[in-house]
Design a protein around this nucleic acid. Structure first.
Lengths: 231, 231
DNA sequence: ACCTGAACACCGTTCAAGT
DNA sequence: ACCTGAACACCGTTCAAGT
């Protein structure tokens, strides 16, 4: 239980090392495990030493957003796809799905990103890239502005689900429990039962996150494409 | 500073009174102000007394979602619009924009909703209603399932923005600071400058939340409408 | 300059004791 | 049954003191 793992016995602390350790702590134990004390422990230092490199915990969280977005930027800027005219959609889609891969490796990070809309150089850079692609596609600045709002967090590769039947397996117990709710929520139960039945792989899980993400993304991108060149 | 306001001097505590007090505390001071101790204070009791009516703070947050969603349900179920065929869109749109009004009164609540996807009877009921409308419109269960994922939190009337130039006024200082960033983020700065210039009311704010929400919502609803009746 | 021990002002929650 | 005071095990953060 007392798993005191120090990254390095005695490397000097730096802002960058603090931030990377913070990401690693959250990767291991979720965002709840990220406390200043635990962070210091992983770095082989005392909690109070961290304050010489970051102003406070808020700055640690801001820094996490910065580091992760920089990682995304490195990946997406390596993508070499044409974006002129109709090609914009493929280029934007590739960027967004690449960004998504980073979040799949840091599932806890989406919540951190949502909690701080404050502008961050790396996030600005990511958006600047997207805007450039859409300009090449022929959109007006006004259209792009609307588009970014419409995409919301999808522009960075993740979406916040409020309605989630769960990604766990569709057990017989779950199906039975569902059937009991049929009178109270007839439409919902009918839908879920049919979704579970239709999908031959439904024994795996209720919803395929990636499929649903791409469906929503394409719905929006296709809708935007229809506005292109108009007005 | 010591503003000890008790809702009622000596009413017996109930789960419902605790939850409504919790909403009122958050309305006044944001979600950060909602502590068990502060909540008890408002109710004229000790923090420990709350635990006779709720298991823990998690249950308080779950209860908040329940109470707010019930308020939404009462409002949307009073809407009497036809949903058959092409009329589905207007009906769904009206429900979602009505739900949105409730969140505009409790801006802190969106974060609470996002943090707990666990099924809640009131949330299930809200979704059941939406599904019913879309069935009337002629969608398959499978299409509706995709649609709910695509809408995400928009189905309940709010959207999580990652890119937000701010809703504050467009000051000369902000414009000057923006111009300095032009070299680093050329596309972003060009877009923001044009958005600020184009809008005659831009002296008010960068983005109109309601306009952007409706743009994104209509983009998705229109996209869904095109799928209706197919496959 | 960088790091630290002790302490402060908070949390949520437990527990034994009150009415 | 419902409520409470004192206490526990945590937080983030400050401060004076060490090297």
């Amino acid at each position: 239980m007392v798993d005191v793992k120090r990254v390095e016995p005695r490397l000097p602390l730096t802002r960058d090392r603090v931030l990377r350790a913070a990401i690693s702590v959250a990767d291991d134990g979720g965002i709840g495990a990220l406390t200043m004390r635990r962070l210091a422990e992983v770095l082989g230092a005392e909690a109070m030493s961290l304050y010489h490199h970051v102003a406070n915990k808020e700055e640690v969280l801001d820094g996490i957003v910065e580091v992760i977005t920089s990682e995304i930027n490195e990946l997406v800027e390596r993508i070499d796809l044409p974006a002129e005219g109709a090609a914009w959609k493929k280029a934007v889609r590739a960027r967004i799905l690449t960004a998504r891969e980073v979040f799949l490796r840091h599932p806890w990070a989406t919540r951190v990103f949502e909690s701080r809309t404050g502008s961050n150089p790396a996030v600005l850079r990511y958006n600047d890239g997207l805007i450039g692609l859409m300009r090449a596609g022929g959109f007006t600045h006004d259209q792009i502005h609307h588009a970014l709002h419409a995409l919301g967090s999808r522009a960075m590769g993740f979406s916040q689900e409020l309605f989630d039947p769960g990604t766990g397996p569709v057990t017989d117990e779950a199906l039975a429990a569902l059937t009991e709710l049929a009178e109270t929520f007839p439409h919902l139960v009918a839908m879920l039962l049919e979704v579970a039945h239709d999908d031959p792989a439904s024994t795996l899980s209720w919803c395929d996150d990636q499929t649903e993400f791409e469906f929503g993304l394409d719905l929006i991108l296709d809708g935007l494409d229809r506005l292109r060149g108009r007005s």
